[in-house]
Every structure is written in C-alpha cells, then in structure tokens.
C-alpha cells in the first residue's frame, strides 16, 4: 500500500515539475510550430491557422506569462514584474494590448500576410505569444470582476462577428485560402463564440443551484463571473 502511495506521489511530483516547466515546453512548442514543415502544416488551411495554430501560440505565451506572474519573490523576473505591475493597474494596459493583438491577427489581410511571408509570420508568433497570451496571463488576475465580464462579452461578440463575416462573405477574403475553408472557419468561430458563452455563463447562472452555501461560494477570490 505504502509503495503505491509513494509511486503516486512521485507521479504527482513529476507532473508538478512538468507544470513548472510548462512555459519552457510551450515556448519550445511555439518555436517548433514556426519551423517550415510544421508551419506549412499549421497554415495549410484557414481553419488550422485560426483555430489550431494561433490558439497554440497564445497558449504558449499564456504559460510564459503564468510563470512570470508566479515567479518566486526576490527573483529578477519578480522584480521586473512588480515594476511592470505599476503600469498595469487592474490589468488595463495588458488588456488593451491583448485586444489589439487579437483583432489584428483575425483580419483576413493579416492571415494572408502571415501565410505568405516568413518575416510577418515570425512577427505573428512573437506578438501572439507576447502580445496576447502573456499579457492575458499577466493582467487577467488583476482585472476586476466587472471588467472580466465585459471582456468575456466582447470576446464572444468578436468571435461571432469575425465568424459571421467569414461565413457570409461571398468572395474569398484571403488569397491564400479557399472559399469553403473560409466558410468552415467562420462557422467554427461562431461555434467557438457559443461554446465560450455557455462556459462562462454557466456558473453565474446556475452556480449555486446545486446546493452548498451560496455566500461562501461567492466569496471566492475569482468571483463567479471569472
């Protein structure tokens, strides 16, 4: 019995250490994704570029940001962060940066540019990781719950707007992608908006219905909207 427990602990420890390395792993992943064969694969269709490759890059940046936020007290990263924090009260600056980055890379022209030019694609990788994923990880925890709710609604609306636009366009908006691909990407973005809406609305709507002490639940730091 004891042996089993030990083994379990070891697995948990290994998993934990992997989580600590997650930023490294994810940045490595981002660089890998930029390498020609994987880059070509990830950008071969609009669906892949918008719904697989780009989210992965954002995730990589987010992991890096998460690590930065959790950097141990006194470390250089932590000192830098606490200086940067003073420019990012309530996460305002980070969210502004992230909003522009998100919208810019959903424009058809940017999708084309990234597909056609390696330089711009490298810029895309860097900005999605450090201009979207990282600022979100850094700023979200500092965002007041009201701002989070408004951001959620805006993200849902933005996904739906772009999705609808791509699905409704009667011509190819990207020179690099076919019409059917564009429509598919559009519908998937709309689906993503719906899924996002359900996921973020579920807890505020029904969170306390299953029993438990509502007041205690509501006092959690994240707030039910988060």
């Amino acid at each position: 019995m004891m042996v089993h427990l030990d083994r379990l602990r070891a697995v948990v420890r290994a998993a934990a250490s992997l989580t600590r390395r997650l930023p490294l792993v994810s940045l490595l992943l981002a660089v890998l994704l930029l390498l020609p064969p994987l880059r070509a694969f990830g950008e071969a269709t609009m669906v892949r570029q918008m719904l697989v490759q780009m989210p992965l890059i954002v995730l990589a940046g987010w992991c890096a940001g998460r690590a930065w936020v959790r950097a141990p007290e006194g470390s250089r990263a932590a000192r830098l962060r606490s200086f940067a924090d003073s420019f990012n009260r309530a996460g305002a600056t980070g969210i502004v940066i992230a909003s522009f980055t998100m919208i810019l890379w959903m424009l058809p022209r940017s999708l084309d540019a990234a597909r056609l030019s390696f330089g711009i694609d490298a810029l895309k990788f860097a900005s999605l990781a450090f201009g979207l994923g990282l600022p979100v990880a850094w700023s979200w925890v500092r965002c007041p719950p009201i701002a989070r709710a408004v951001i959620h609604v805006e993200v849902i609306a933005t996904l739906a707007r772009f999705g609808w636009g791509f699905a409704a366009a009667d011509e190819r908006l990207c020179a690099s992608y076919l019409q059917g691909d564009q429509e598919r990407a559009g519908m998937l973005l709309v689906a993503a908006a719906l899924a996002w809406a359900v996921v973020v609305a579920w807890r505020p709507l029904f969170g306390g219905l299953g029993g438990g002490k509502p007041a205690a639940k509501a006092d959690r730091r994240d707030g039910a909207i988060a």
């Binding site: 505020p204 969170g207 306390g208 509502p214 007041a215 039910a224």
Partner: peptide
C-alpha cells in the same frame, strides 16, 4: 451572485 449564489437563485 455574491448575495444569493447564482443568478438562478
């Protein structure tokens, strides 16, 4: 939500 637990409540 803080007071009642959820919007449904």
């Amino acid at each position: 939500i803080r007071r009642y637990g959820s919007l449904a409540r």
